[in-house]
Simulated scan of single mutants.
Amino acid sequence: MSWYDLARGLHILAVIAWMAGLLFLPRLYAYDVEQNGKAEPLRSEMQGLLRLWQARLLGIILGPAMGAAWVFGLWLLWLRSGNGADWSFAHQPWMIAKLVGVVALSAWHGFLAGERKRIVAGASTRSGRFWRMTNEVPFLIAIVMVVSVTTEWAFG
């Protein structure tokens, strides 16, 4: 077993957990927003449960999984560079696409975390339709990232 294979396996597991959370949290937001038109006390009971799930998903799965994905990803970069000796691969189009994807997923994660605060404060203006339409954004980004890394494509 090589260190690179270990780092790659751990990175993949962390990304799977992170992606699962990124795909599920907007769905919870859609359900939460749609409770606003319902009658009490069922509305507040259901929103309380949904908000508990949101908090747990962010705190127990999403945050740690994102952190682990970053740590193992940086470790992979270090190992791929020959322990810092050759970073030429980092300038290749496929790696740039991967890194842009990582930044985009991290930004989406931050947006989702901030939106939870707005939802709890009653200040969110997003609809259930918005959350359903944006639910697949992380997966579309992941497609580009995975294809980039597995094919190592280049121009010309």
Rank of each mutant, 00 (worst) to 15 (best):
V137Y: 06
V146Q: 05
A85I: 13
L42V: 15
Q92L: 11
V71E: 01
L22Q: 10
L76P: 00
G128A: 11
M19N: 05
V33I: 14
A104N: 09
I143V: 13
L6H: 08
A107D: 08
V100S: 05
A68L: 15
A90N: 12
A142K: 08
V120E: 10
V149R: 04
T125C: 12
G67Y: 09
E136T: 11
I61K: 02
F155M: 12
E152M: 11
K38Q: 15
L50G: 00
A97S: 13
V146H: 10
F111R: 12
W75L: 15
W94P: 00
M46G: 02
G101I: 04
S124E: 01
A68W: 07
A97H: 05
V146N: 03
A65W: 03
L22A: 03
F111P: 02
M145N: 00
L42P: 11
Y4E: 11
H91M: 13
G63P: 04
I16L: 13
H11E: 02
L22P: 02
P93W: 04
R126V: 00
H91W: 12
I60K: 05
L58S: 11
L99C: 10
D32G: 02
V147A: 13
Y31G: 01
P64N: 04
M19F: 07
A69D: 06
E45L: 14
P138G: 08
A121F: 06
A113I: 07
H91V: 14
L23D: 00
N83L: 15
Y29W: 08
P138Y: 03
D32Y: 01
L62Y: 04
G21K: 00
I16V: 06
G84S: 06
D32C: 00
A107I: 15
M145A: 12
S127P: 05
G114D: 06
N36A: 12
G82S: 09
A85D: 14
V149I: 12
W131C: 02
W53A: 15
A104I: 08
G122Q: 11
A7N: 03
G48V: 03
W78K: 12
L58V: 11
A154F: 11
M1S: 15
K38S: 09
N83M: 14
G63E: 14
R126Y: 02
R56H: 11
L25K: 01
A65D: 08
L74I: 04
M133Q: 13
W18I: 02
E40G: 12
